[in-house]
Amino acid sequence: MVHQDSSLARPSIRSHLRALWFITVNNWKHHWRYPLNAVSEVLQPLVWLAPVYFMGQAFSVNGKAEGFAGYAGTSDYMSFIILGTALSNFIMAVFWGMGFSLKWDMDGGVLEANWLAPLPRPLLLMGKTFSSVATTLITSLVMLGIAASIWGFHPTGNVLAAVLTVVPLLIGLYGFGFAFAALVLLLREANTLVDTGSFVVQLLAGANFPVNVLPKWLLPLSLALPLTYGFDAVRGWLLKTKTLLPLQTEIVILVVFMFLMIFLGLRAFNALERHVRRKGTVGQY
């Protein structure tokens, strides 16, 4: 009896890792269980890219956007946009996927049961993060491949440096996702917030244009967003565009952003955990 009790209550690093693996696999399976949604995630950005491409044609001569080069440092408008769209997929994944992950568990009636498992609660979101990064990466690469074959994508710079720059950017973004998931769970009806928030963040981070074209009253908001430097640095490495700050400075900002977001994300999540335990509202929706 004593042995049984202790085995149930004795979590170890190994049991945590096993749980993390199963949470990841669970989310992974859930994602691919709806193949039409996965196809839609690839097609949606392409549908948005087409009007942007034709608009570019209306300003370009012989496929060269010379006016655009004055701001971005490259006349390869479509490579700039396609790369921004691929990175934006992660913003959408964090806002919609991570943001609603706890809420969906709550609506599905499994949050309370998961919450009772002898696990550190942040593991629930970490598993979701791993699965989300993997599925969004696959979706983005497929989208990038199709977009490249239709409109052309010409990375002329350092691919490895660009990939390494993406790492702190994504970790920071998913750290923010922890805090955002907590907020969505508290608000319950957050569709407008998520819809508008994700659009505004994409706009201010310069997903589809160089941010120096923003009006003076909006530019400070954009420059206060670490994601802006992430987008800028990745484009700087891969497409050799003009960057807002020296690349090294932008990477330092991204690394600071990463640690700050991990810290704030965990703090917000722990605060939520205390709140729902005290109020007993984890099973309500």
């Binding site: 655009f68 244009f209 923003l214």
Partner: peptide, 20 residues
């Protein structure tokens, strides 16, 4: 999103506007 894109395509000296 489109307007900012158009601003950037027009360029700082408005070179893209001629074509538009």
């Amino acid at each position: 999103m489109y307007i900012m894109g158009a601003f950037s395509l027009a360029g700082p000296q408005g070179t893209g506007i001629t074509r538009f």
